[in-house]
Design a protein around this nucleic acid. Structure first.
Length: 600
RNA sequence: GGGACUGUAGUUCAACCGGUUAGAGCACCGCCCUGUCACGGCGGAAGUUGCGGGUUCGAAUCCCGUCAGUCCCGCCA
């Protein structure tokens, strides 16, 4: 049907007769000569219908409109001098159309313009999602889909061809498991009254594959979690899921660095510096107040709890006395950049801290000669030696603004982390085009859930505790790691428990009784009785990784057919009601009562 | 479950403090134009101001409710 793609034609094709198929990107009619920009997945080529050279194509060239589907046959011709378009990859040539065949027309007015030539006018996302087929035709989205494909292709080449991984598909129809996110449920018709759950991840199956001697497994796996949506969260999303046997944590991190480097080299042509920096969870929380720090800029936090425990400023000493802490976010040149109004209630910097639970933001402005400009209570409450030590620890120079967080440790970290990120953006401290990967290791095994009054697994309950900490699991570090890119977690994993007795201890620590553990995970525990190799793995959020690589701000722009924040598909209008008969067959009845709409 | 923002022509936006017939760019339609590439010129059509109610002499504008989309908190092992 065609001989070439529009976008691949170059000067070397001059003289050839080619047949192209594609969409009309744009048409320029000069009353005689007509230009048609023809677009396919690979780019745009200019078609010319010239009354002197190709009069036979004029009637059709006159009829075509934007987004018509046409087939063009003609001779590739070089453009002369000023006719060359340097902004087009095919700008040195054009095709004199001997025939233009209209394969299909557009019968309605387009809801938005597909052509990238129309300037970057933003189209409402609601409209883009409803007409997703037109949206995906646009250059930006077509590029995103291609990038995603390139990433997956690079992953497969590396894991399969270089590292001996095999891809194994695991069930979508699964069993509901405790902990974790809310499950999507699927009723079983054959087993009435029983339900499948869609997988939140292939976790258990990949571990069983290790027991099965698979050695190295990966899967581009769809995962489902019935939780509320965000810019970076969809109810169904894709993981690169990996698991491997007989590898230490260090070896797993090493292999994954190679994988990431391979992806960026293959897709972006970028050589990433190795090894990636590694931070323990403890260190990350101390220095950045979060477990996925953006290290493209400084603004590291400084601990001063020990220093200010008995100072005269009650906000500080009080916070420490009740088990909390005081930390400082030093902002070089912050004195000029951030006014007092912005730090006080009503200000934007204050709001960031307040939304994380902070009551306020104490501050010190460091002036010339180490003079400190601050509120009276702090001036009089701190001794000269305390002031001197603050300057020393923060390395503050004239012009530096010191922002204080004083509360329980979590609130201090959370609020200063937010302020840190906010200020970095505000002061333009985030370098573009920099890729800062890092590993965060030694996550805690558990954290206390105050609502349920019990410990919860930070990663998941199959994560192996650090052997050194096995004596007291409640405070144990896990052999778990996250990989972070520019402040976004793109993947996480762990070494797994492969001994039944350790697994039972961990279940006990999170309050999962023997009976329930047997009922929910008996198949895994049983498998552990039959020769389980030491193993571990990792899972990457593919949508997120592609989002960062494409510069998009939502994973919806990396997914061909995403859901809205209300978890609806605007293209198909899913979800939708079903026939009564379908429910009957499943012995399912809805108890849902639609809310009464007033004023109707 | 909660907070915030948005909704006006096909589309992107405008319309001051509530005051004539709700405007503009692009798209669309018609005519003209033989080298453009965001072609150009002239003309035209196009509106339930998301929906429902209220206040008012008068509502795109103010109030209440509702729907949809987006961002965030909760939630997401």
């Amino acid at each position: 049907m065609r001989t070439h793609y529009c976008g691949e034609l170059r000067a070397e094709h001059i003289g050839q007769t080619v047949t192209l198929c594609g969409w009309v990107d744009r048409r320029r009619d000069h009353g005689g000569v007509v230009f048609v920009d023809l677009r396919d997945r690979h780019g745009i080529a200019q078609i010319v219908s010239d009354p002197e050279r190709t009069p036979e194509s004029y009637p059709q060239a006159d009829k075509v409109r934007s987004e018509y589907v046409v087939r063009v046959t003609g001779r590739v011709s070089g453009r002369e001098g000023g006719a060359v378009n340097p902004r087009l990859a095919t700008g040195e040539i054009e095709i004199y159309a001997e025939s233009i065949e209209i394969l299909n027309t557009v019968n309605k007015q387009l809801p938005f313009q597909v052509s990238a030539a129309d300037g970057g006018e933003s189209v409402k996302e609601e409209l883009r999602l409803k007409y997703r087929y037109l949206d995906l035709r646009r250059e930006r989205m077509a590029n995103n889909l291609k990038l995603r494909h390139d990433v997956v292709k690079a992953i497969r080449r590396f894991l399969e061809d270089q590292e001996n991984f095999i891809e194994v598909e695991t069930p979508i129809l699964n069993k509901s498991t405790p902990e974790g996110a809310r499950d999507f449920l699927v009723p079983s018709r054959v087993n009435l009254g029983e339900w499948f759950a869609l997988p939140q991840s292939p976790q258990l199956f990949k571990q069983i594959l290790m027991v099965a001697g698979c050695d190295r497994y990966y899967q581009i796996a769809r995962c489902f979690r019935d939780e509320d949506l965000r810019a970076d969260r969809q109810p169904e999303f894709t993981q690169l899921d990996m698991e491997m046997s007989f590898m230490s944590e260090a070896e797993i991190l090493e292999l994954n660095e190679s994988l990431i480097c391979h992806i960026f080299k293959a897709v972006k042509g970028v050589d990433l510096p190795r090894p990636f920096p590694r931070l323990t969870y403890r260190e990350s929380m101390d220095r950045y107040g979060c477990d996925r720090p953006d290290t493209r800029y400084g603004l590291e936090l400084v601990e001063v709890s020990d220093l200010l425990a008995d100072c005269g400023f009650k906000v500080f000493s009080g916070a420490i006395a009740s088990g909390g802490s005081v930390k400082i976010l030093p902002i070089p040149n912050g004195n000029d950049a951030i006014s007092n109004v912005r730090i006080k209630p009503g200000g934007d910097v204050f709001r960031e801290a307040a939304e994380a639970g902070a009551k306020g933001l104490a501050y010190i402005r460091v002036r010339e000669d180490s003079e400190m400009d601050t509120i009276g209570a702090i001036k009089t409450g701190l001794s000269d030696s305390q002031k001197a030590e603050i300057l020393k620890r923060t390395g503050a120079e004239a012009g530096t603004l010191l922002l204080f967080g004083a509360a329980d440790v979590n609130t201090v970290n959370k609020s200063l982390d937010r302020v840190r990120q906010f200020v970095a953006k505000d002061m333009n401290l985030v370098p573009e085009n920099q890729l800062n990967f890092l590993w965060v290791t030694e996550f805690p095994m558990f954290e206390y859930n105050a609502d349920d009054k019990r410990l919860e697994a930070v990663h998941h309950p199959f994560t192996s505790p650090n052997p050194e900490d096995i004596g007291d699991l409640s405070t144990a570090r896990a052999q778990a790691y996250d990989i972070v890119l520019n402040g976004t977690e793109i993947g996480g994993g762990s070494l797994r428990i492969y001994q039944r007795d350790v697994q039972e201890k961990v279940f006990a620590a999170i309050g999962l009784g023997d009976e329930e553990a047997q009922e929910k995970f008996g198949f895994l525990l049983n498998a552990f009785e039959y020769g389980t190799p030491p193993h571990g793995g990792i899972a990457y959020g593919l949508d997120r990784l592609v989002m960062l690589m494409s510069g998009e701000e939502s994973i919806r722009d990396t997914i061909a057919f995403p859901k809205t924040q209300q978890a609806r598909c605007l293209l198909t209008d899913a979800p939708a009601s079903v026939d009564e008969q379908q429910l009957k067959e499943l012995e399912v009845r809805s108890t849902y009562v639609p809310p009464k709409v007033e004023n109707s």
